[in-house]
Amino acid sequence: MSQAEAAVAGAGRATSPLWTFGILRSELTTMLRRWRTLALLGVLAAVPVLIGIAVRIETGDGSSPGPGGGGGGPAFLSQVTNNGLFLVFAALAVTLPVFLPMAVGVVAGDSVAGEANAGTLRYLLVAPAGRTRLLLTKYASVLLFCLVATLVVALSALVVGLLLFPAGEVTTISGTRIGFGEGLLRAGLIAVVVAASLTGFAAIGLFVSTLTGSGIAAMAATVGLLITVQIVDGIPQLSAMHPYLFPHYWMSYADLLRAPVYWDEVVKNLGLQGLYAAVFGSAAWARFTTKDITD
């Protein structure tokens, strides 16, 4: 069959609506095959290992970790020696303010701008990927990266925790005890909530990424914004703004370790992330669908 004949046949060919998801699969595998993504995940996996080893060394003589018997340092750290599962919560507490969102900022910031920079964006668009479809695909893959990154931290922490420390019943923040199995379930729930906490910031990164044709600039701007907002969130005089800042309720995931679970702030957090995702997702869409692609 000649090219033109096939093309004519192709003009009326049946296409399956399912084929549209081929780009999502391609996007995910492409993202996960980048060296940068693997390096970020590697760093995230190393954090719990470092924490676990540090705690183990410091408590090797039987004392409790940290100066003053666990008064300082990240949340949950003092309980790690009693129960390895707590390394999961401690590692998430350590990585959530900086490491996790930084990794997400790099991936989200690069998502569109990096393709523009490499020139591959124009070929995806003439394929034709469709601008809305491509943007949705990009956001979906960044969201998946949020989940993968969080799970990498949690699983690494779980393995290290169980190797270095005893396991057993979990003492909740409220003081009650739950079985190890239920503790594991709570840990899984917490990982999902932590991943969801990053969705608002991921949308910001995607929006920034549509503004520029330089992947590096988009990554730097996104991560810079994160640091700025974190600083503002730490200044008591600006407390009026705090409830509207995307990282403000991030640490609320600890409430999932109460008995009964205290949902208020978790729900506020998820609502705030949804709001950020809607606002910056729309902004990214408005920008990307009208942009002249000249790179």
Partner: peptide, 19 residues
């Protein structure tokens, strides 16, 4: 995509086309 093989580059571009 420099980090992909020639074949994988084409697979990616092809999967961008919903038809």
């Amino acid at each position: 995509y420099g980090f992909l093989s020639g074949r994988d580059n084409l697979l990616r571009y092809d999967s961008a086309d919903p038809t």
